[in-house]
Amino acid sequence: MDQIQRSEHKKGCANCGAELRYKPGSQQLHCDYCGYEEFIEAAKSSFEELELQHYLKIVGNNAHAQTIQLLHCKNCGANQHVEEHYKSLKCVYCSEPLILEDMEREGWILPTALVPFQLDLKEARAIFRKWVNGLWWAPDKLKKAALDPEGLHGLYLPYWTFDAHLRAHYRGQRGDHYYERQTYRTKQGRQTRQVRKTRWRHVSGTVSGLLDDILIVASQEKGRQLPAKIAFWNLKELVAFNSKYLSGFVTEKYTVSLKEGHHRSFQQAKRMANTWIRRDIGGDAQRIHQTDIALSNETFKHILLPVYISAYRYNGKNYHFYINGQTGTVTGGRPYSFWKIFFLVLFVLVVIALIAIFAP
């Protein structure tokens, strides 16, 4: 995973010169040392939708080359970028130390917009601790990990969004259910029952509509897929991209190309077209024999969305825990304590044995 460009003109605190960080849920940068705050210029609520076919032709050449700096994890291969000093920084996925890589130049597309973090680190830790404490049979080490102030990291994940006008011609069949009385024999004699049947007729037609913000994750590697439970953001809160929102957080660059992202969005468009077609056919059942789909006025955005992540290793296996940085929804894989379960089962067996011995 390559990462977002480091700001070339980073501004320090006007009072003490320390680094300013974005204050989640606000329009301000904050100094952790002296408390100084600086406003981020008013964010635009509207931003340019980029013309898809134009970018598909030019992306990959040097027309959009940017200088980026990577922090590389030798353990899991992830590359991360931070808008802060990287000394002693650990990988958000496996907690191994990150190593500074050489500068690289490559063609890539800058983010158009982002959803800023609405939860600060203190709030995220409180949510994480509450969730962990509610887990039955969790190892004590996991509960201690939830208290580790260095164990939770804010991460901006890259996504593609695609808009288009969809028009689909279809041929198929509409099925309408009806019932017939059927007689059959049993040991008790002749019985009757209602049997459902379907009357089919051929249909054809056209559906059309606007596809708005088909969301495609742009950083997807085996073993690090974001759980669907937290992958919901209110995109109405997108603001125009400003690198100041990245300060204090880790940011990933997309690894799913624009071309691949477009291919995946088309698969979603096909599923949406089938839904529209079935609704248009109507009846009790539908069969779709042929569909010709055309997309026009295709545009896209490269956006960043906020999530907190904690990596925990138990019995040789990595577990990841996630908090949606906008909504506070939490989920993750979890280990079970063998010994807690063992002693509970043992306790239950002892209780049963005592009841059996002393029962009258």
Rank of each mutant, 00 (worst) to 15 (best):
C76R: 14
K74Q: 03
N315G: 12
L226P: 02
E51Q: 12
Y156K: 03
H165N: 02
D148M: 04
V345F: 15
K236F: 14
Q286E: 11
L349H: 07
K143V: 05
H85Q: 01
N62Q: 14
G325M: 00
A353R: 13
R313I: 15
A18W: 09
Q182F: 01
K144S: 00
V82N: 09
I309E: 03
S26Y: 08
R264L: 12
L246R: 05
V132P: 10
A138E: 00
Q225L: 11
L346R: 04
H72D: 03
Y22G: 04
G325C: 02
K144T: 05
L29S: 07
K143E: 09
T291N: 01
A126Q: 15
N15M: 06
I281T: 05
I281K: 07
T67D: 04
C34L: 13
I230D: 01
A273W: 02
E104R: 02
T67A: 09
S46Q: 10
T112A: 10
L354Y: 13
K222A: 11
N234F: 03
R193G: 07
D32N: 15
L110T: 06
W137H: 11
K144E: 11
H85R: 05
D292L: 07
T291L: 04
W131F: 07
R167Q: 14
V256W: 06
F347D: 03
D284R: 09
V307G: 13
P111H: 01
I281D: 05
T206N: 13
K253R: 13
N61Y: 14
S243F: 13
K340Y: 06
F338L: 11
G35C: 12
G205S: 04
R279C: 01
I303L: 06
E150S: 05
V239P: 15
Y308S: 00
E252W: 10
G77P: 11
S204N: 02
T291E: 09
A124Y: 05
Y312H: 05
G248S: 11
K10Q: 05
A294G: 08
A43T: 02
Y312N: 05
R21E: 04
Y93Q: 09
L119H: 08
A218F: 02
V307A: 12
W339E: 02
P360A: 11
L52W: 06
Q220N: 10
Y22P: 00
Y336R: 13
I281H: 08
H72Q: 07
G12Y: 01
R313N: 11
F321D: 01
H30I: 02
Y336E: 15
Q182A: 01
C76L: 00
K229W: 14
N75D: 06
R129E: 15
E221H: 09
G175K: 05
F162W: 11
H289N: 04
G205C: 02
S310Y: 12
H153M: 09
S337C: 09
Q191K: 14
G172F: 07
D102W: 14
Y159R: 06
G172L: 04
L211V: 10
L29K: 00
K253C: 00
